[in-house]
Nucleic acid binder design. Structure first.
Ligand SMILES: [Mn+2]
Ligand SMILES: [Mn+2]
Ligand SMILES: [Zn+2]
Ligand SMILES: [Zn+2]
Lengths: 136, 136
DNA sequence: TTCGTTGTTTATAATTATTCTAAAGAAGAT
DNA sequence: ATCTTCTTTAGAATAATTATAAACAACGAA
């Protein structure tokens, strides 16, 4: 089955109509070997480059938010004027190259288990993420 | 010596003129027992409340950036529409209460040492920060 | 197929955090 | 006191994101 067919199926299963725009965005985001870290603007430009078809900026925002809500994308906490997203939705850690403004995945074994010895009454831990900032 | 005198001295030592506005901001930020996590807007409102004097928003931005550059404030990486700052400039980790949108300091012993087993050629580690997200 | 419904895309406007500008004011040096 | 330099400020500019509402496309039922 071609990737396009799979994206259509996945979209349908998620109650998202498989539009031309969404399929193109899927191709750009998910037809990859490695994790993809991106800003909305990165993605907006890549769609044009890779598919030859233009998708409006509003649709890129809409789609990224829809995918995020469905759990197909993850938001990455770094301070930047733009929000970063990640196609790797598992719990994992990052290097952040401050100069290049680029994220790099860390494998969990590169960091080791992290035991949080403190707890807040009435709250439970949702995620534990390490951000390692890199400089030259 | 009163705190005001100390702030004046500290500002002078940092080649920042001790203006009424900066001293007020110092009182709000640094006259505390515990770490203070805030957004520019939090601070802007607190200044009016705590000192009775209004400082323009532009000055709050200017001053926070000046203090940040001097190393008296730290920027905290969480995804939010507003940037968070921290009066605790040491290397430390955080809980982030997603619902309350509040940061809580973690002591280093609450997390334990983190060994990063991977390195990127030509880059060195600048900081290692853990963000623990909390939910109900 | 056609039709009606509902969901989606899009250009554009609105919003919001932050930065910039330039004029007025305050601090420091002489 | 005078001069210089730094600071404050209101308001304008910028830039990311979200909202609006009209045109459009997908879907299901007839
Ligand atoms: Mn989102
Ligand atoms: Mn800053
Ligand atoms: Zn990642
Ligand atoms: Zn802190």
């Amino acid at each position: 089955m071609t990737s396009k067919q799979e994206f259509i199926k996945k979209l349908r299963n998620s109650s998202l109509r498989p539009t031309k725009q969404r399929i193109n965005i899927c191709e750009v985001l998910f037809n990859r070997d490695k994790t993809f870290h991106f800003t909305i603007n990165d993605l907006f430009n890549l769609i044009k480059d890779k598919t030859g078809e233009k998708v409006s900026l509003a649709t890129v925002y809409n789609t990224v938010h829809a995918f995020h809500k469905k759990g197909y994308l993850k938001e990455i906490p770094i301070n930047s004027n733009q929000t970063y997203f990640d196609t790797n939705v598992t719990d994992h850690h990052h290097f952040y190259d401050v100069k290049e403004e680029k994220l790099i995945d860390l494998k969990n074994e590169d960091v080791g288990p992290i035991e949080i010895q403190k707890s807040i009454p009435g709250k439970k831990i949702k995620s534990v993420e390490v951000l390692v900032k890199l400089e030259d």
